[in-house]
Design a protein around this nucleic acid. Structure first.
Length: 271
DNA sequence: CCGGACGCCTGTCGGC
DNA sequence: TGCCGACAGGCGTCCG
């Protein structure tokens, strides 16, 4: 489900309700996530205060005193704030129960999500240690993409979906950014010019920022922490529109496989 | 080092 | 109606 805009939407929804709140209990209904939930997680979290909720890549970071709880939503995960004693729906695997009476509930049918408690700011955790720059931060530029891509034969779409290149760009927003930049998704990363990487970096930033403003993209079941869907879907130019006419040139949008992922693009607008 | 394939899960949808 | 395969917003790991 979630790429960076959906995770950021979740963060913004959750943070005001849990920042400064104390975890009174942790309920783990199913330990079988992407990695098994640590058996001692409840005892290590109980009684601790959340000072802030941050985000790095697609991870939510719950700041505790000296530690950080890393939470990844995987493909189908979502976080909801619900009143205490709300009966759990199917796949509600984890609850953080707060002393103020609200429960932060993690629901994830496919169980590709994960929860880890890491020391310090979490930055040295193996899952975070090798991540590339944030797309909305200063470290992400066309020049960075250009330098990093020299000599690489990998498709440019797979290249920008690699978290070592830039974090947070998944299948939807990679397709959208490439459309905006006019770059064919299967073009070798090493054969994209410096000028076009400048345009691609700008397109990635713009599409992510717009999607955040819209509360993310809801394809089926994504909802923000308050239960509202994102409405960026109506702004998608290519993702999910195979066979439909390009809004720019009218040509039917094509569907191909790039790096084992379905990829929609316009053969007229993207070269 | 690089890049491609695979696997982890459940739910949904289209075709027969 | 039922079954069956394909596919889905991610990503770590393995292998050549």
């Amino acid at each position: 489900m979630p790429e960076l805009p959906e995770v950021e939407t979740t963060r913004r929804g959750v943070a005001p309700h849990v920042s400064g709140a104390t975890i009174s209990d942790v309920v783990v209904r199913d330990h079988r996530l992407r990695w098994p939930v640590a058996e001692d997680l409840p005892q290590r979290l109980r009684g601790r205060q959340v000072s802030a909720v941050d985000r790095r890549a697609k991870y939510l970071l719950f700041r505790l005193d000296g530690d950080t709880l890393l939470l990844h939503l995987g493909m189908s995960g979502s976080l909801r704030l619900v009143p205490a004693r709300t009966p759990p729906e199917p796949h509600a695997h984890l609850d953080l129960v707060f002393s103020h009476g609200q429960v932060l509930r993690f629901t994830d049918p496919r169980r590709f999500g994960s929860v880890h408690l890491a020391p310090g700011d979490g930055g040295s955790h193996p899952l975070l240690a090798r991540l590339g720059p944030e797309p909305l931060g200063d470290g992400f530029t066309g020049e960075w993409l250009y330098q990093r891509s020299r000599g690489r034969r990998q498709a440019v779409k797979a290249f920008i979906m690699d978290a070592a290149t830039v974090v947070g760009v998944g299948n939807i927003y990679a397709a959208e950014a490439l459309f905006r930049a006019g770059i064919h998704p299967a073009r070798a990363a090493g054969r994209v010019s410096r000028r076009r990487y400048g345009e691609l970096a700008a397109a990635v930033r713009a599409v992510l920022a717009e999607a955040i403003d819209a509360g993310g993209t809801t394809l089926r079941d994504f909802v923000g922490s308050g239960g509202r869907p994102g409405y960026f879907r109506q702004s998608l130019s290519v993702y999910g529109r195979a066979g439909q006419p390009c809004r720019a040139c009218g040509a039917p949008l094509r569907l191909i496989q790039v790096g084992q992922r379905s990829t929609c693009y316009c053969s007229g607008c993207q070269r």
